[in-house]
Design a protein around this nucleic acid. Structure first.
Length: 203
DNA sequence: ACGGGGATGGGCT
DNA sequence: GCCCATCCCCGTA
Protein backbone atom coordinates (compact mmCIF):
# COMPACT_ATOMS: atom_id res chain seq x y z
CA UNK A 1 0.00 0.00 0.00
CA UNK A 2 1.11 3.51 -0.79
CA UNK A 3 2.13 6.02 1.85
CA UNK A 4 0.15 9.26 1.94
CA UNK A 5 2.38 12.07 0.66
CA UNK A 6 2.96 15.65 1.67
CA UNK A 7 0.38 16.97 -0.80
CA UNK A 8 -2.29 14.92 0.97
CA UNK A 9 -1.51 16.60 4.29
CA UNK A 10 -1.01 20.06 2.82
CA UNK A 11 -4.68 21.05 2.80
CA UNK A 12 -7.16 22.42 5.27
CA UNK A 13 -7.35 20.40 8.48
CA UNK A 14 -11.10 19.68 8.15
CA UNK A 15 -10.53 18.13 4.71
CA UNK A 16 -7.59 16.01 5.83
CA UNK A 17 -9.41 14.91 9.01
CA UNK A 18 -12.31 13.49 7.01
CA UNK A 19 -10.12 11.84 4.40
CA UNK A 20 -7.89 10.14 6.98
CA UNK A 21 -10.79 7.93 8.08
CA UNK A 22 -10.27 4.35 6.94
CA UNK A 23 -6.56 4.90 6.26
CA UNK A 24 -3.95 2.81 8.09
CA UNK A 25 -1.57 4.26 10.66
CA UNK A 26 1.72 2.35 10.81
CA UNK A 27 4.47 2.49 13.42
CA UNK A 28 7.70 0.60 12.73
CA UNK A 29 9.40 0.10 16.06
CA UNK A 30 12.00 -2.36 17.32
CA UNK A 31 11.73 -4.29 14.06
CA UNK A 32 7.99 -4.70 14.55
CA UNK A 33 5.22 -3.36 12.38
CA UNK A 34 2.23 -2.13 14.38
CA UNK A 35 -0.77 -0.91 12.42
CA UNK A 36 -4.35 0.24 12.92
CA UNK A 37 -7.20 1.68 10.90
CA UNK A 38 -8.07 5.30 11.67
CA UNK A 39 -11.70 5.46 12.86
CA UNK A 40 -11.99 8.90 14.48
CA UNK A 41 -10.30 12.28 14.00
CA UNK A 42 -10.68 15.93 14.94
CA UNK A 43 -9.60 19.03 13.03
CA UNK A 44 -7.87 21.87 14.86
CA UNK A 45 -8.02 24.86 12.58
CA UNK A 46 -5.24 27.07 13.88
CA UNK A 47 -5.28 30.85 14.21
CA UNK A 48 -9.08 31.36 14.36
CA UNK A 49 -9.91 28.21 16.35
CA UNK A 50 -10.20 28.87 20.09
CA UNK A 51 -9.70 25.17 20.82
CA UNK A 52 -6.35 25.01 18.97
CA UNK A 53 -3.02 25.28 20.76
CA UNK A 54 -2.01 27.71 18.01
CA UNK A 55 -5.08 29.91 18.50
CA UNK A 56 -4.38 33.58 17.89
CA UNK A 57 -1.00 32.76 16.42
CA UNK A 58 0.43 31.50 19.67
CA UNK A 59 3.92 30.27 18.89
CA UNK A 60 5.91 28.54 21.64
CA UNK A 61 8.48 25.75 21.56
CA UNK A 62 5.73 23.17 22.10
CA UNK A 63 3.59 24.19 19.11
CA UNK A 64 6.42 25.24 16.79
CA UNK A 65 6.11 22.13 14.61
CA UNK A 66 2.63 23.26 13.50
CA UNK A 67 4.25 26.30 11.87
CA UNK A 68 6.39 24.06 9.67
CA UNK A 69 5.80 21.57 6.89
CA UNK A 70 2.64 19.51 6.59
CA UNK A 71 2.88 15.80 7.32
CA UNK A 72 4.91 16.11 10.53
CA UNK A 73 3.77 14.78 13.88
CA UNK A 74 2.74 17.05 16.73
CA UNK A 75 2.61 15.20 20.04
CA UNK A 76 1.75 16.71 23.38
CA UNK A 77 1.34 15.33 26.88
CA UNK A 78 -2.06 15.65 28.54
CA UNK A 79 -3.01 15.29 32.22
CA UNK A 80 0.55 14.34 33.05
CA UNK A 81 0.12 10.74 31.89
CA UNK A 82 -1.06 10.48 28.32
CA UNK A 83 0.03 11.61 24.89
CA UNK A 84 -2.07 12.86 21.99
CA UNK A 85 -0.94 12.25 18.41
CA UNK A 86 -1.59 14.88 15.73
CA UNK A 87 -0.58 15.35 12.12
CA UNK A 88 0.31 18.85 10.92
CA UNK A 89 -1.67 20.10 7.91
CA UNK A 90 -1.92 23.20 5.72
CA UNK A 91 1.74 24.10 5.54
CA UNK A 92 2.55 27.80 5.99
CA UNK A 93 -1.08 28.92 5.47
CA UNK A 94 -2.19 28.30 9.04
CA UNK A 95 -0.71 26.28 11.96
CA UNK A 96 -3.29 23.47 11.87
CA UNK A 97 -3.32 19.81 12.82
CA UNK A 98 -5.53 16.73 12.86
CA UNK A 99 -5.86 14.85 16.16
CA UNK A 100 -6.12 11.09 15.73
CA UNK A 101 -8.73 10.14 18.33
CA UNK A 102 -9.32 6.42 17.76
CA UNK A 103 -8.10 3.47 15.71
CA UNK A 104 -9.03 -0.15 15.07
CA UNK A 105 -6.07 -2.50 15.78
CA UNK A 106 -4.87 -4.50 12.75
CA UNK A 107 -1.29 -5.78 13.20
CA UNK A 108 0.64 -6.17 16.48
CA UNK A 109 -2.43 -6.78 18.62
CA UNK A 110 -0.50 -8.87 21.16
CA UNK A 111 2.03 -6.08 21.64
CA UNK A 112 -0.82 -3.61 22.06
CA UNK A 113 -2.45 -5.75 24.77
CA UNK A 114 0.90 -6.13 26.49
CA UNK A 115 1.68 -2.42 26.38
CA UNK A 116 -1.74 -1.31 27.57
CA UNK A 117 -2.61 -3.92 30.19
CA UNK A 118 0.43 -6.19 30.58
CA UNK A 119 -1.70 -9.18 29.53
CA UNK A 120 -2.28 -11.45 26.54
CA UNK A 121 -5.08 -10.34 24.23
CA UNK A 122 -7.18 -13.43 24.91
CA UNK A 123 -7.07 -12.73 28.67
CA UNK A 124 -8.75 -9.36 28.22
CA UNK A 125 -12.42 -8.66 28.81
CA UNK A 126 -14.43 -7.81 25.71
CA UNK A 127 -14.59 -4.16 26.59
CA UNK A 128 -10.81 -4.01 26.92
CA UNK A 129 -10.40 -5.79 23.59
CA UNK A 130 -12.53 -3.14 21.94
CA UNK A 131 -10.89 -0.44 24.04
CA UNK A 132 -7.28 -1.23 23.15
CA UNK A 133 -6.94 1.95 21.10
CA UNK A 134 -10.30 3.73 20.90
CA UNK A 135 -9.19 7.01 22.44
CA UNK A 136 -6.41 9.53 21.85
CA UNK A 137 -4.40 8.53 24.92
CA UNK A 138 -5.15 4.83 24.49
CA UNK A 139 -3.91 4.66 20.91
CA UNK A 140 -0.64 6.32 21.83
CA UNK A 141 -0.15 3.66 24.49
CA UNK A 142 -1.11 0.80 22.18
CA UNK A 143 1.05 2.01 19.26
CA UNK A 144 4.04 3.03 21.42
CA UNK A 145 3.69 6.68 20.43
CA UNK A 146 5.35 9.10 22.83
CA UNK A 147 7.50 12.26 22.80
CA UNK A 148 10.25 10.50 20.81
CA UNK A 149 7.85 10.59 17.85
CA UNK A 150 7.22 14.34 18.17
CA UNK A 151 8.34 16.32 15.13
CA UNK A 152 8.80 13.25 12.93
CA UNK A 153 8.09 13.33 9.21
CA UNK A 154 5.25 11.00 8.22
CA UNK A 155 6.79 10.86 4.76
CA UNK A 156 9.62 8.88 6.41
CA UNK A 157 9.84 5.22 7.42
CA UNK A 158 9.14 5.04 11.14
CA UNK A 159 5.62 6.41 11.43
CA UNK A 160 3.30 7.05 8.50
CA UNK A 161 -0.19 6.54 7.10
CA UNK A 162 -0.94 4.16 4.24
CA UNK A 163 -3.66 4.73 1.72
CA UNK A 164 -6.43 2.13 1.84
CA UNK A 165 -9.54 1.38 -0.14
CA UNK A 166 -12.59 2.38 1.83
CA UNK A 167 -15.64 1.42 -0.21
CA UNK A 168 -19.00 2.56 1.17
CA UNK A 169 -17.58 4.22 4.25
CA UNK A 170 -20.02 6.65 5.82
CA UNK A 171 -18.78 9.53 7.91
CA UNK A 172 -20.47 10.97 10.98
CA UNK A 173 -19.72 14.55 12.02
CA UNK A 174 -20.03 15.92 15.56
CA UNK A 175 -18.73 18.45 18.05
CA UNK A 176 -15.20 17.92 19.30
CA UNK A 177 -14.59 16.24 22.67
CA UNK A 178 -13.11 17.77 25.81
CA UNK A 179 -12.87 21.42 24.77
CA UNK A 180 -15.62 23.04 26.84
CA UNK A 181 -13.36 26.02 27.49
CA UNK A 182 -13.32 26.98 23.81
CA UNK A 183 -16.42 29.26 23.81
CA UNK A 184 -18.16 29.31 20.41
CA UNK A 185 -15.55 26.94 18.92
CA UNK A 186 -16.63 24.11 21.22
CA UNK A 187 -19.69 23.52 19.03
CA UNK A 188 -17.98 23.48 15.63
CA UNK A 189 -18.62 20.16 13.81
CA UNK A 190 -14.97 19.23 13.38
CA UNK A 191 -14.97 15.69 14.77
CA UNK A 192 -15.30 12.86 12.26
CA UNK A 193 -15.77 9.13 12.72
CA UNK A 194 -16.72 6.05 10.76
CA UNK A 195 -20.41 5.32 11.09
CA UNK A 196 -21.07 2.06 12.89
CA UNK A 197 -17.48 1.46 13.99
CA UNK A 198 -17.06 -0.19 17.38
CA UNK A 199 -13.63 1.41 17.65
CA UNK A 200 -14.73 4.97 18.38
CA UNK A 201 -14.23 6.88 21.64
CA UNK A 202 -17.79 8.24 22.03
CA UNK A 203 -20.89 7.23 20.03
C1' DA B 1 -25.17 0.85 33.73
C1' DC B 2 -23.62 5.00 35.40
C1' DG B 3 -21.15 8.83 37.64
C1' DG B 4 -17.63 10.97 40.54
C1' DG B 5 -13.01 11.61 41.45
C1' DG B 6 -7.98 10.75 41.52
C1' DA B 7 -3.65 10.22 39.10
C1' DT B 8 0.24 13.15 37.44
C1' DG B 9 3.60 16.51 35.05
C1' DG B 10 4.71 19.88 31.54
C1' DG B 11 3.50 24.28 29.65
C1' DC B 12 2.34 28.78 30.24
C1' DT B 13 1.02 33.26 32.91
C1' DG C 1 -0.08 28.02 40.67
C1' DC C 2 -3.49 26.58 37.50
C1' DC C 3 -4.94 24.31 33.49
C1' DC C 4 -5.43 20.68 30.62
C1' DA C 5 -7.65 17.89 22.87
C1' DT C 6 -7.61 11.59 29.21
C1' DC C 7 -8.32 7.17 31.37
C1' DC C 8 -9.56 3.93 34.83
C1' DC C 9 -11.28 2.53 39.18
C1' DC C 10 -14.55 2.16 42.51
C1' DG C 11 -18.79 3.43 44.56
C1' DT C 12 -23.80 3.11 44.17
C1' DA C 13 -27.93 0.69 41.63
Amino acid sequence: MKKLDRAFYNRDSVIVAGELLGKVLVHQTEGQRISARITETEAYMGIEDKAAHSYGGRRTARVEVMYGEAGFSYIFMIYGMYYCFNIVTNERENPQAVLIRAVEPLEGIEQMAQRRFGKQYEQLTNSRKIGLANGPGKLCGALAIDRRINGMDLCGNEIYVEDAKCEDLRIVTSKRIGIDYAEEAKDYPWRFYIEGSKYVSVK
